[in-house]
């Protein structure tokens, strides 16, 4: 295998890994802020991609406006979902909430499928005309953009959770809701905010994925890879999730290139099992050492 192909594989692996990390970050955020594992997260990714498609193809807006509008739109959808469908169930057993998020996901998927029946679509980005060439290989500049965006989001989230009072309040709510209320934290506002940010991150993943894999109703299945990334991060550690996502992306791409497609298909699950056995609290997780 030539150097240029190896380089191509690294960039491709990091790029799909970045998407996994981004999806994982969104899942983890929702969990950190509300204690809910949102199974509709994958469909929110698809929703973001379709919203971008709509803004781009129907309203013919330029990419940067599409980018911003999509994030806002999906943030608002996230709040509406939380207010109308999740909040009334907050006191229900967690299994009920899981089923509810699954149902929300199915609803979104079917609405998308019926309202945009093209089997696969895409929209223009400023990166379409750029090309990075190495030997006879062309590296998709979109990959570079995806990787940068994911790292930027991880950095912003880390800052938000470490330095920002609202970010800390979000974690407080998920760790002990009653205690958070006794601090004067408006739990319902935190929930809405959490869903807004988490949905916007899902939408970002959708916008970034769309030009690479195409917009289609099934793209929400990326949630599985996001799960693996989030679990590698112990559903708690941001760097753990990002390293997990990137590891998964690279393993898939290189494993696939050297050992064939079957290896690729099982990579995610083998990695997941391995981590759960060896480091059950995630790559950077620590064993629970709470004393009460």
């Amino acid at each position: 295998m030539t150097t240029s192909i190896v380089l191509q594989l690294i960039v491709a692996g990091l790029s799909s890994g970045s998407i996994y990390a981004l999806v994982g970050l969104g899942l983890m955020l929702a969990f950190k802020g509300t204690g809910i594992v949102n199974f509709a997260h994958g469909e929110l990714v698809a929703l973001g991609a379709y919203a971008a498609l709509f803004f781009s193809v129907v309203l013919k807006l330029p990419y940067w406006q599409v980018f911003i509008l999509t994030l806002i739109f999906c943030g608002v959808v996230g709040v509406l979902l939380e207010r109308t469908l999740i909040r009334p169930l907050m006191r229900a057993p967690s299994f009920t909430i899981v089923v509810a998020t699954l149902a929300i996901g199915l609803m979104i998927k079917n609405v998308l499928r019926l309202s945009w029946q093209e089997s696969v679509s895409t929209f223009a980005t400023p990166f379409d005309e750029l090309s990075l060439r190495v030997g006879e290989i062309s590296i998709n500049p979109h990959y570079v953009w995806i990787i940068s965006c994911s790292f930027a989001i991880m950095g912003l989230l880390a800052l938000f959770f470490r330095k920002n009072l609202t970010g800390k309040a979000m974690q407080a709510v998920s760790q002990n809701t009653t205690a958070a209320r006794l601090m004067g934290i408006r739990v319902s506002r935190i929930f809405s905010l959490t869903f807004a940010v988490s949905s916007a991150i899902a939408a970002l993943a959708g916008i970034l994925m769309a030009p690479v894999v195409g917009v289609e109703a099934e793209m929400g299945s990326v949630i599985l890879k996001g799960f693996v990334a989030a679990i590698l991060g112990g559903f708690n550690s941001l760097p753990g999730c990002v390293v997990g996502g990137l590891t998964l992306g690279l393993l898939e791409t290189f494993g696939g290139a050297y050992f064939g497609g079957t290896f690729k298909a099982v990579t995610a699950f083998v990695l997941l099992m391995f981590v759960l056995l060896v480091r059950p609290h995630g790559i950077f997780g620590r064993a629970e050492a709470r004393r009460v």
Partner: peptide
């Protein structure tokens, strides 16, 4: 498999065989 997003392994194999035509049987995505 249906739903795969990355075909690098298969394409590298095909490239190594140096064909005139690659026929691919799959769905649109």
């Amino acid at each position: 498999k249906v739903g795969d997003k990355d075909f690098t392994p298969q394409l590298l194999q095909a490239k190594a065989a140096n064909p005139d035509v690659i026929i691919t049987l799959a769905q649109v995505p």
